[in-house]
Design a protein around this nucleic acid. Structure first.
Lengths: 249, 249
DNA sequence: CTTGACCCTGACGCGACGTCAGGCTGTGCA
DNA sequence: TGCACAGCCTGACGTCGCGTCAGGGTCAAG
């Protein structure tokens, strides 16, 4: 195969193949009399490995070293491991974004530490308390609120009232002994979900279930509900997850 | 906060912050009398957005444009969408690596098209047939086999015999009417899994279940089993997945 | 035998920093 | 009070992984 064909097949540019040839990462196994690069099946094989490692963020020099040192089975194992790591990290980032969405929707402020948790390899706690004190105060938070909203004041009042209404009815149901997995509680949960979708972001049942889990696992969110009524965090969480299961089923 | 503190918190270098300041992507909201950069809470907020977009592969200039144009809710929605895309892609890559592992273990050759499927935005079929003809021949494959193995010839013979033994016993069980989700069939599946783990790569129950699904979904693997006995692909697939469920439960 | 698509080799440019160099600042402690 | 030493500053040059011409040969179709 010629450069152009290989490039099209692999979704890269001809220039990239030239580059890989120049730096000795992937030299085609043959040339025509007129100097055209000719790529063989093993060359494509190697290119494939290169692209996987590249996507995983390895510098090309290191890729060359790896490919020249280890056997194919080892590459597959390593790539598998690295990809699973990446999967985990991406899942964590998705979860973090969803948490942030929910925090905004509920008017809870996350600390910088919480936000940066995914980046940088975790810091000593010494720092934590100090920064919490410095940045966790309400002034910065209120300012941030003002800055971040595009809703008008009236919208905002209405949205808050809607949210508190559902929370109140959740609390009533809890007090009245209505089971959290009853149809009535699930209906409330569904209303909660649609409210979020309307006012903040598109929240499908699956994502809603994730939020439900967070309501008990994350102390900030738990505190928000516990403050309204003891046991409400778990109650809402159960109702939301039961509703999600109902939607799925 | 000073540069060093922010850098430590966010898991980046001081130089990176200098760079972001220089290009106007993130300028600290204040300076001390002596010229030290001082970062405020909103600055950290912006930095966080920058890092997420950066991780998602956006050029910094575009990040600046996005951050100056849209409101926070829009960023969260966009980031959520992009992260979910990335999740899907990573899952596809994991699946591809597992498929490749299994192909090697079973002695099946994947075409370059299959391997590059994840890269480059899918090609016209015109190409497909031609390349298949060029690269799908057994000569290149055998050569690749010789190149890629680090096992000795004797090892290789033994491993192949082991594999064929289990396949034969699967076929016998099928012929004898042993249900695919019976304990006996699951035991065979478990033996199969351990064989793969010993001889090729570490194959946990979850991964094994994935392979099981592939045995019927991918025509190449299906053909391998159907050639031994009709209905064997589905039979093995079911047994493998039942065994994985048993292990998990 | 020409036209147009494809290939070649330099060579320079660029984005996102890394890495000094040379000098000022802030603080713990002797 | 002085000073050692960590931390901050601003250039300025280097690096990696290509993108993007420029200038010129190649090849299949008509």
């Amino acid at each position: 195969m010629n450069v152009g064909e290989v490039a099209a097949l692999a979704g890269i540019t001809v220039r990239t193949l030239h580059h890989y040839d120049r730096i000795g990462l992937l030299s085609p196994s043959g040339r025509t009399a007129s100097g055209y690069r000719r790529y063989s099946a093993p060359d494509l094989d190697r290119l494939h490995q290169v692209l996987v490692y590249r996507e995983l963020g390895f510098p090309l020099e290191e890729v060359a070293a790896l490919l020249d040192a280890d056997d194919p089975a080892e590459h597959l194992r390593r790539q598998h491991r690295l990809l699973r790591d990446r999967l985990e990290r991406t899942q964590a980032m998705v979860a973090a974004v969803e948490k942030e969405m929910e925090a905004r929707a509920m008017g809870i402020s996350l600390t910088p530490e919480e936000r940066f948790e995914l980046f940088g390899d975790w810091l000593p706690e010494e720092y934590e308390a100090e920064a919490e004190q410095r940045w966790g105060d309400t002034e910065a938070w209120e300012q941030s609120q003002r800055r971040t909203r595009s809703y008008s004041k009236d919208d905002w009042v209405r949205i808050k009232a809607e949210g508190e209404d559902v929370e109140r009815r959740f609390a009533e149901a809890l007090r009245a002994g209505v089971p959290a997995d009853s149809a009535a509680a699930m209906d409330l949960a569904e209303e909660h979900r649609q409210q979020i979708s309307r006012n903040f972001y598109d929240c499908g049942p699956e994502m809603h279930a994730g939020l439900g889990r967070m309501y008990v696992e994350d102390e900030r969110f738990a505190a928000h509900y516990e403050q309204i009524a003891p046991g409400l965090a778990r109650y809402v969480s159960t109702a939301v997850q039961a509703n999600a299961a109902r939607q799925a089923g």
